[in-house]
């Protein structure tokens, strides 16, 4: 069952579209449910589809097409590091290596305590601040150094 909080947010998104186009809100509905539950299970996706009155497979298509949806648990804090060209030119590999060492995990792995998951991202459209990372799809951290990464991790642990 979708929570009343999620439903309230989805209803707000629905005000942006014509009444007969409920499917249009699926992108945000999936995002809202993912934010609340941490990741999107098959069940969550089907609940969203039912709420919007769209075929489950269509919601599944969206959830699998866009790479910020997580179809498996990602721990409490998902850290996505961009390694695309502009970040690569400014040594994003140093940041990646540092994160891997600090967290003791590779890409797409979750730390044993369930606190962190490390992901490799494609261009986030903030290349002026390279190298950069993203926490839980919402917080952007730019102009990274290994010291800054340590501070970010410390703050997240609290």
């Amino acid at each position: 069952m979708l929570s009343p909080q999620s439903i309230e947010k989805i209803e707000y998104e629905l005000t942006k579209y014509p009444a007969n186009q409920r499917q249009a809100a699926v992108m945000s509905a999936l995002r809202i449910v993912q934010t609340e539950r941490g990741w999107l299970s098959q069940e969550s996706i089907s609940e969203v589809a039912q709420y919007l009155g769209m075929p489950e497979i269509a919601a599944m298509e969206v959830a699998t097409f866009y790479n910020m949806y997580d179809l498996a648990p990602v721990g409490k804090h998902k850290i996505t590091v961009c390694t695309n060209i502009s970040c690569m030119l400014r040594d994003s590999d140093v940041i990646v290596d540092h994160l891997k060492e600090k967290l003791g995990v590779g890409f797409n792995e979750v730390t044993p305590d369930g606190q962190f998951c490390l992901k490799e991202g494609e261009c986030m459209g903030c290349c002026g601040g390279a190298p950069l990372l993203h926490v839980n799809n919402t917080e952007m951290h730019e102009f990274l150094t290994t010291e800054k990464v340590d501070a970010i991790l410390e703050a997240l642990k609290k």
Partner: peptide, 27 residues
């Protein structure tokens, strides 16, 4: 006027993929 968001797909910068995405479909 409303703001809507993508969720990680370069292809949605192509205008008709973007339109598909606004409609709640894969881009």
């Amino acid at each position: 006027l409303y703001a809507v968001h993508g969720y990680g797909a370069y292809i949605c910068g192509e205008e008709t993929a973007l339109i598909e995405s606004i409609e709640g479909k894969k881009g």
